[in-house]
Design a protein around this nucleic acid. Structure first.
Length: 1031
RNA sequence: GGGCGAUUAGCUCAGUUGGCUAGAGCGUCUCGUUUACACCGAGAAUGUCGGGGGUUCGAGUCCCUCAUCGCCCA
């Protein structure tokens, strides 16, 4: 055992341990009626790219919970898998295709592109699973799922079919965020607003046959001139006076509570408004009257008559007070269009060029059309000012190109009842969300009950199981329905047909097929129906994840046993997109909530407070951290930062591949292709390396020194274990009598009981930072610093050796179990060794431990082992040790010198400290020459009073006295005491305090003041004596 | 514009229902290789708890307000 290295070699150990766990199927879960199930489904990582530290945190926390529950005797299933991430993945692959081969998806065709994406998926899924495994995630890998695999596909089709049959899926026109690059609709959540420089163009539209006294033109302004081709109205406010009054009232209210600086600004606004009102109100009222009168304007360039309408969307305080309405290409105008029943003219092709509705501009791109429209209006003398302006422009998150609002046919899921059911689940606390503040966002979002557009014009995803035919007349539609009704699948409920009457009175026929069935599909296609080319929103399949992975719609034993799952651990940004939808789909499909609890963990930010991402260059790969610090350090380091309020700022460094020096990442250097190491001068490359020259350099790992503490802790534990193992060669198991154990052993048992309770509760409540802190403090400051140190002399004593070994082995055993969920590898590696030297262990009765700590039982809180008085007694001992150390340090006494000490204490303390007297030698280099009420000061004395426990420690400085140093120490002590005494006196002189504070608080203050005063007097005496002596 | 959160030592963070001299790790300084560990041990220094106001005998903690930062939604 003496050949154990003094560093934990995580690299070789981890690989061996992973294999052993895997061979023994430690993480496999089966339906087992004898145990209670505990189920967690992984938030399936996107196969878009590799995992970063955010995933590292997410999965570490899940694993801590799952491992703890497994040890607690639950049949713990952690369901693993990955997400096909529709648009994100297709966008990545398409972009690469363009960059590397200059091909578009149309060059490859649907199948070709999808094949390419499967290749990408295979590559990244492998990488992701490798990352999870190296992190130690104890998923049941036998049950691995993918949101696009056959099992999930069956669930998706069954769900779609069910909702379609219930008429909760419908076809509708909606204004969607159109990505002209990817040629698909993207959801609001995939849109980011960027502020860009743009212009504000002013146009005039002629009034058709103006009456005398009426304006001949109406002025409007726009940031997107080309959209005028699709204008179907111009709006003016219906009650301009009311609108002006309202704004004025708001400003006046604001000015009442404003600071002087703001007041000037607001007053300016008020003045401007008043002026505007004077100048414009009559004109606006006239236009409003014209609108009510049904007057028309002539849309220039298109020569189309459009109505002047009255609508509140027109803001009298802005621009000309009139606004052009393009319902098919602007969300606000769309609402106006709905209200006013206006025609909606889509002027764009899917690729973003103008379509035939744009007349002579057809075929132009948007920028070309914009330029041409402006030029043509100018030649007609209808162009006014052009202002420079900053414009908020929506951009696609995926393709980084501008979004065009676009009216398109989409499939929708009606959310009314579904959303309500998911709201009820949370308000009734059948699903509990922690921290609770996240409930609000969940409920607010669902409360809007906005229908969910689920079709995506993509090729990568679950293809919508709808076959359709359009443009039928009533007879033809009925005939087709009748023929479909003859198909056996219709009778067996595997086929649904619905007729939709379109605006133009033609019929569309939609057929939904429940299961994949090429014969049936062929039959339907033979009738002239065509399969919908679109795929489903990726969240549609994610929403089914908790039940689809367990085999739904089959009534599997797994579903019966493991569903509802126990808890979901995820990040806050997908509470609505994912969590809410899982709840409503779970309720709809299975009839029960998908999970009982949801824990939302903090986000990991870099040192500059920004979220980590590969595109910024500040992303940290958990593997880099594991390579440098080990998997246990990664996990411990992340878990100790997981509080429930604060996002985690984690400064990021490059690790120089030549000298291992860590170089802080800055905004500047994180985007460079190569860097020079300021320490060794060597150069290294980064993820941005492009040129052959740069790529030839070694690539630096991106890590964070935040993990050093955790790595040190792993090593501390390893070495404590090493010490234990080195002292176990003659170990033999034995039953011990708790009552006969010496104080320090009972202290350890008591502390174990306390710590176990604390840690168990903390993990129950998802207080990961707290549980890791408690474990760290206990392991380092109590087990190592005190228990192991005290064990040293006892191990050297043949009479005490055997009992010490027994308790030591037990203590280490329990500690390993408690730490295992956070640090699985090092604990398992140590466990393996302990099993060899102490194959039976435990207090009071030894037992044979299981082969793996991973499958060992979670320590129980042994209430009988808890002893408050012993913990207090030991704390007293620790305090005395601390006092001696302080005096030694202030006198610079060399550590190898033993100092005589005299400890004056009460009789009761005497009985507590007496048994521990000999341990002062090892812990404080002190020999106790006197102990008890009679103990006195030395001739050359350094005293320290511990008032809280009524003890005075005296150290004999005869051989060591440094008068200056001792005087300095005492004077400093005295000044601190005086400061405190003054504070307390002030407090107690305050009549209000004495009268109103609870008596116990006042008494406590009084007692404390008396102690301090006594101590101060004593120190004063010491100072005087020392001064006299030194003269 | 609305909602949520944050602001505590040079850095990263703790601080339960208001009640000790506000803590930890890293970093800094001093001392030290005593047989598990220098990825170690002992000790020290460092805080107007973002600003202002209020409630209270008493506020890092509760309330109001302002500022700054972050996230979500419009």
């Amino acid at each position: 055992m003496n050949d154990i290295p003094d560093r934990f070699d995580h690299e070789t150990a981890a690989e061996r341990i992973l294999q052993a766990w895997s061979d023994a199927k430690c993480a496999h879960a089966e339906v087992n009626p004898d145990r209670k199930p505990f189920t967690v489904v992984i938030p399936p990582p996107n196969v878009t790219g590799a995992l970063h530290l955010g995933h590292g945190l997410n999965n570490t926390l899940q694993d801590i919970v799952v491992r703890t529950r497994r040890m607690q005797g639950y049949e713990a299933l952690w369901m693993p898998g990955t997400d096909h991430a529709g648009i994100a993945t297709q966008a990545v692959v398409e972009r690469r295709l363009k960059e590397q081969e200059n091909l578009s998806r149309h060059d490859l065709g649907r199948e070709g592109l999808v094949d390419r994406i499967w290749e990408w998926k295979a590559q990244y899924e492998k990488r992701i699973l490798g990352q999870l495994k190296r992190m130690g995630c104890s998923c049941d890998w036998d049950r691995l799922r993918f949101t696009l695999d056959d099992v999930c596909a069956t669930a998706v089709r069954a769900t779609f079919y069910d909702l379609f049959s219930k008429r909760m899926i419908y076809r509708g026109k909606r204004l969607v965020n159109w990505d002209t690059f990817l040629q698909t609709a993207v959801s609001n959540d995939e849109v980011e607003n960027l502020t860009k420089k743009g212009h504000f163009w002013h146009f005039s539209y002629p009034v058709v046959n103006p009456k005398s006294g009426e304006p001949t033109h109406v002025d409007i302004a726009t940031t997107r001139p080309e959209t005028m081709l699709g204008d179907t109205a111009v709006a003016v406010h219906p009650e301009p006076v009311t609108a002006f009054n309202k704004i004025e009232a708001e400003l006046k209210q604001k000015i009442a509570g404003a600071t002087d600086k703001e007041r000037i600004d607001i007053q300016d606004q008020l003045d401007g408004l008043a002026k505007r009102r004077d100048e414009m109100l009559p004109g606006l009222e006239q236009l409003r009257d014209m609108a009510i009168d049904g007057r028309k304007l002539m849309l220039p360039l298109m020569d189309r008559e459009i109505p002047l309408i009255a609508d509140v969307w027109a803001k009298p305080e802005l621009g000309s007070g009139c606004v052009k309405i393009t319902p098919a290409h602007d969300p606000n105008d769309y609402e106006v269009g709905i209200r006013g029943d206006l025609p909606m003219i889509n002027i764009l092709n899917p690729d973003g060029t103008i379509n035939s509705e744009g007349g002579k501009y057809a075929g132009l791109t948007i920028p070309q059309a914009r330029k041409q429209v402006v030029a043509d209006l100018e030649s007609l003398d209808l162009l006014g000012d052009i202002e420079d302006r900053e414009i908020e422009l929506p951009h696609s998150d995926r393709s980084k190109t501008p979004i065009e609002p676009y009216l398109a046919d989409q499939w929708f899921v009606a959310m009314g009842d579904l959303a309500q059911s998911a709201m009820d689940a949370v308000t009734s606390e059948r699903v509990q969300i922690y921290p609770e503040r996240y409930r609000k966002g969940y409920l607010d979002w669902l409360g809007e009950k906005r229908d969910w557009p689920v079709s995506r014009q993509l090729w990568w995803g679950h293809r919508i199981p709808i076959w359709s035919i359009n443009g039928l007349d009533e007879a033809a539609a009925d005939d087709l329905v009748a023929r479909l009704g003859m198909i056996p699948a219709h009778a067996s409920g595997d086929l649904q047909a619905q007729i939709d009457v379109r605006d133009d009175a033609t019929r569309s026929l939609y057929v939904c097929i429940r299961q994949e069935d090429s014969a049936l599909e062929g039959e339907v296609e033979a009738m002239g129906l065509v399969r919908d080319p679109d795929v489903l929103d990726t969240w549609f399949s994610s929403a089914l994840w908790p039940h689809s992975t367990l085999g739904w719609p089959e009534k599997t034993r797994e579903l019966e046993y493991f569903y509802p799952t126990s808890t979901l651990i995820t990040s806050r940004d997908i509470i609505t997109l994912w969590v809410a939808r899982m709840v409503l789909m779970g309720l709809n499909n299975v009839g029960d909530v998908p999970f009982r609890e949801v824990f939302i963990h903090p986000k990991i930010l870099d040192g500059l407070g920004e979220t980590m991402s590969k595109s910024k260059g500040n992303g940290v790969d958990p593997i880099d951290v594991i390579d440098k610090f080990g998997p246990d350090a990664l996990r411990f380091g992340l878990a100790r930062l997981a509080t429930d309020t604060q996002d985690v700022r984690m400064p990021v460094q490059y690790e120089c591949p030549h000298c291992e020096k860590l170089i802080d990442q800055t905004k500047k250097n994180r985007s460079l292709p190569k860097l020079g190491c300021p320490s060794c001068g060597g150069e290294f490359s980064t993820q941005w390396a492009e040129s052959a020259e740069d790529k030839a350099l070694t690539k630096a790992a991106v890590v964070s020194e935040r993990f050093e503490t955790a790595r040190n802790f792993v090593n501390k534990l390893w070495n404590a274990a090493r010490f234990v193992l080195m002292n176990m060669e003659d170990y033999s198991s034995q039953t011990v009598v708790i009552e006969d154990l010496p104080l320090e052993d009972r202290w350890l048992l008591s502390r174990l009981a306390t710590v176990t309770k604390h840690v168990t509760e903390a993990v129950d409540r998802y207080r990961f930072a707290e549980s890791t802190r408690v474990l760290y403090d206990f392991a380092w400051n109590e087990f190592c610093s005190f228990y192991v140190e005290i064990a040293k002399p006892r191990l050297a004593d043949p009479e005490k050796r055997a009992v010490t070994q027994a308790v030591l082995a037990h203590g280490l055993d329990r500690l390993l179990r408690l730490l295992h969920p956070v640090m699985p590898f090092v604990t398992e590696a140590i466990w393996e060794c302990v099993n060899q030297v102490a194959p039976e262990r435990g207090v009071p009765v030894p037992q044979e431990p299981p082969q793996f700590v991973m499958t060992a039982s979670w320590p129980e809180t042994v209430a009988e082992h808890y002893d408050e008085s012993i913990e207090r007694q030991f704390a007293e001992f620790q305090e005395v040790v601390g006092a001696i150390r302080k005096i030694r340090a202030s006198q610079n006494i060399p550590p190898r010198e033993t100092v005589p000490v005299s400890i004056r204490c009460s009789d009761s303390s005497l009985s507590r400290l007496q048994p521990m007297a000999s341990y002062f030698a090892g812990l404080a280099g002190a020999e106790v020459v006197a102990l008890g009420p009679e103990a006195t000061a030395f001739e050359t004395d350094a005293p320290l009073a511990l008032t809280s426990i009524d003890v005075v420690v005296h150290v004999d400085l005869e051989k060591f006295i440094d008068v200056e140093a001792e005087l300095a120490r005492l004077e400093k002590l005295q000044s601190q005491l005086i400061k405190q005494i003054t504070g307390k006196e002030q407090k107690l002189n305050n009549e209000n305090f004495v009268a109103r504070a609870p008596a116990e608080v006042v008494d406590k203050e009084r007692a404390s003041l008396a102690d301090l005063q006594q101590q101060s007097e004593s120190v004063e005496g010491d100072i005087q004596r020392l001064r006299e002596k030194s003269c």
